[in-house]
Computed example of a mutant assay.
Amino acid sequence: MHSIQNKNIKIAIKNIGAELSSIVSLKNNKEYLWRGDSEYWGGQAPILFPFVGRLKDDVFIANGKEYSHKKHGFFRKSNAVKLIEKTDTKLTFSITHSKETLKVYPYEFEFKTSYELIGNTVSIRHYIENLGTGCMYFSLGEHPAFNCSLNELNKSYEDCSLIFEKTENDVTWNINKEGLLDNTTTEILNNTNVIHLNQKSFEKDALVFKKLKSNKITLANKQEGILITVTFKDFPYLGIWSKPNAPFVCIEPWLGIADSQDSSQEIKKKEAIINLASKESFSATYSIEIHD
């Protein structure tokens, strides 16, 4: 575990998957990130690379060859991640391809993630470089879970609402029992900027948005006010998810999405897949601001 702090906040990062594990305000000594209790969900803020969501049959095809790949990619469970930079307020982690990664993902790459503290904000930047000689295909996403209350962690998300930066008109893309998009939608945002969470919010799995106008979303508790704001201008897709009666909610910026049930499984044809030419690089940043 690694930690850094400034005058306002302190964060901790796990070695495995460079996963954010804690965001504590030094003003009120409150924890904003979900604690990862396996009674509901053992994760906290896994990084999703090189895929977001599930692949059809857990398989993708590249250059005519099938590769088996589990939901959300291998990075979140990788113990090959190395800390390569540490200052008082910044941590940077890196992983490169290996014999093990090439068995499930046939691309040579370097993937860096940095966490930097700026005031009350954690800025998270991802950097991917294609080290191979051909095109590299990947998706990238975040899966942070936030406490719905800073005072009673066993409180459910029914007291919470999600407030978008702009008035929205958008649908959620429905997910079937296999974790794939079934190509149907349900209206969620009808000329409003608020979702009030309730026991039916996640009965069909995550809410999946493709056409939001907003670049920011705020989590608020009706008793405690605004808790956190996530800014995700580099991420065109957004997922929102939790478990029944859980005391957390995940706000998930995505550059990519799960396969649809009629996917060809060809990686080149995957929706929202990023195509990176040889020796080129890509970066994307999002941030978490706490309100104390």
Rank of each mutant, 00 (worst) to 15 (best):
F60L: 09
F51R: 10
G64W: 09
F49V: 02
K56L: 04
E66W: 01
S68Y: 04
K77N: 13
R54P: 01
K65H: 04
L55H: 03
K70E: 12
G53F: 06
L55F: 02
L55Y: 04
A62S: 04
N79F: 15
S68K: 12
S78T: 04
K65A: 03
I61W: 04
G53T: 06
A62K: 02
F49L: 11
F49Q: 13
K71M: 10
G64S: 13
N79D: 15
R54A: 11
G73N: 05
I61E: 11
V52R: 09
V59E: 02
F51L: 11
K70W: 03
F74S: 06
N63A: 03
I61M: 09
V59I: 06
E66C: 00
N63C: 04
K71W: 01
K71T: 14
K70N: 08
A62L: 03
P50V: 15
L55N: 01
A62P: 02
V59L: 07
R76M: 15
R76G: 05
H72C: 03
F60K: 05
H72D: 13
D57E: 13
N63V: 00
S78E: 07
Y67K: 07
R76L: 15
D58N: 09
N79E: 14
F74L: 02
I47W: 06
N63H: 07
G53R: 11
K77S: 09
D57H: 13
R54V: 02
L55K: 10
E66Y: 06
P50I: 15
I61L: 13
L48Y: 12
N79W: 12
F75C: 12
L55E: 10
F75A: 06
V59T: 04
K65R: 13
I47K: 13
D57M: 12
K56T: 00
K56V: 00
H69P: 00
I61G: 04
G73S: 09
F60E: 08
L55D: 03
K65Q: 12
F75Q: 11
V52G: 10
F51K: 12
F74V: 04
A62I: 02
K71P: 00
F74H: 03
S78V: 05
P50F: 14
F60R: 09
R76F: 10
E66V: 05
N63P: 03
G64N: 14
F74R: 08
G64V: 14
K71I: 14
P50Q: 14
K65F: 13
L48M: 14
K65E: 06
D57T: 11
Y67M: 09
H72N: 15
P46L: 08
R54C: 08
F60P: 00
E66H: 01
A62W: 05
G64T: 08
A62Y: 04
V59M: 08
P46K: 09
G64I: 13
F74P: 11
R76E: 14
V52P: 03
P50G: 15
H69S: 08
N63Y: 02
D57V: 06
I61C: 08
S78A: 14
K77E: 12
G73A: 10
G73D: 10
H72F: 11
N79C: 01
E66S: 08
G64A: 15
P46T: 02
R54D: 08
D58P: 00
